[in-house]
């Protein structure tokens, strides 16, 4: 068994916190155990720690943080109702009480409050064994589950007839036109920055930082390795957009990310999605293949 050890420059405040134990993310492995066993039995977790040579406490940190992970065997079906802000505003608290009343005695349905499953569009969002749906759909979902269905819930398309007005590309084959122009030299990174600055586009995470200025700063900053990170974490209270954007207009998100990388000189890019909720797979995986040829 060999692990790569390497000298790393110490960064105050970083090495004692994140990435202390080298190795791949444990989340997919925990998900696999839960998928296989329906929950996370102790022996499985101990075996995982042993095989991956990671401390048990690292696993505990993950499974106690994400409500998705179960440390007790499920009693029949699990109905979750989101109690985070958007759903709470839509009355999830009363709905949970109602559901408890309705299914409380049956013994084969467990009602729990859950953190955001990323479906504020159907608030208050429910899940039946992790499959999301509207509260009204719960009886049907329970029925489908009894029939053995394990289909993940569909992503609802909200786009208006004729497509969203923010999409400049009418036809699929025209997509990534701006990126192509940038890569072929038809337009320069400076022009991109200039356009962004003149458009007045600002970040909407709270600080309202001008986007053009940000890209310019990163472009002119010296550094051997730059990263571009797309935050698709859906973490602004009361809003819901990232999932929809990735589901319906992933090409625009990817194009923006790739253009940002080209302009700033970032050699690595990535996207985080819904880490504050359930650790779920990106909903746009199949569609991102349209731009796969650029690597």
């Amino acid at each position: 068994m060999t692990l790569e050890a390497h000298h790393q420059a110490k960064v105050p405040g970083v090495e004692a916190r994140a990435g202390k134990f080298r190795g791949p993310s444990l989340i997919p492995m925990l998900m696999a155990i839960q998928e296989r066993c329906g929950w996370l039995p102790r022996e499985e977790l101990e075996a995982l720690a042993r095989e991956q040579r990671r401390p048990l406490y690292e696993i505990e940190g993950l499974i106690s943080f994400y409500p998705h992970f179960r440390t007790e065997p499920p009693q029949g079906a699990t109905v979750g109702l989101c109690h985070d802000l958007a759903c709470w505003l839509k009355g999830s608290e009363e709905r949970i009480a109602q559901l408890r009343e309705r299914y409380g005695d049956t013994g084969d349905v467990e009602i729990t409050g859950i953190s955001c499953p990323g479906r504020c569009d159907i608030a208050p969002a429910a899940t039946v064994d992790d499959r999301p749906g509207r509260v009204e759909e719960i009886p049907a979902l329970l029925e489908a589950r009894r029939g053995g269905s394990r289909e993940p819930g569909p992503t609802v398309a909200y786009g208006p007839e004729g497509g969203w007005p923010n999409d400049p590309y009418e036809r699929v084959e025209h997509r990534y036109g701006a990126l192509r122009a940038l890569l072929s030299g038809e337009i320069t990174p400076e022009q991109v920055i200039d356009n962004l600055q003149r458009s007045g586009l600002r970040g909407m995470g709270g600080a309202g930082f001008p986007t053009g200025r940000k890209w310019e700063l990163v472009r002119t900053t010296e550094g051997s390795l730059k990263y571009a990170i797309c935050n698709a974490d859906e973490s602004e209270p009361g809003t819901f957009k990232d999932r929809q954007l990735l589901a319906e207009q992933a090409h625009l998100v990817l194009e923006g990310l790739l253009m940002g990388m080209v302009v700033t000189g970032a050699r690595r890019g990535g996207s985080s999605s819904a880490t504050s909720t359930a650790p779920r797979r990106p909903c746009c995986t199949p569609r991102s293949s349209t731009c796969g040829s650029w690597g």
């Binding site: 004692a16 134990f21 401390p55 048990l56 406490y57 690292e58 505990e60 940190g61 106690s64």
Partner: peptide, 13 residues
């Protein structure tokens, strides 16, 4: 972790 290398204590919740 860093002094004794026993890796037992973390955070829960």
């Amino acid at each position: 972790d860093d002094v004794q290398g026993n890796d037992v204590i973390g955070r829960s919740g």
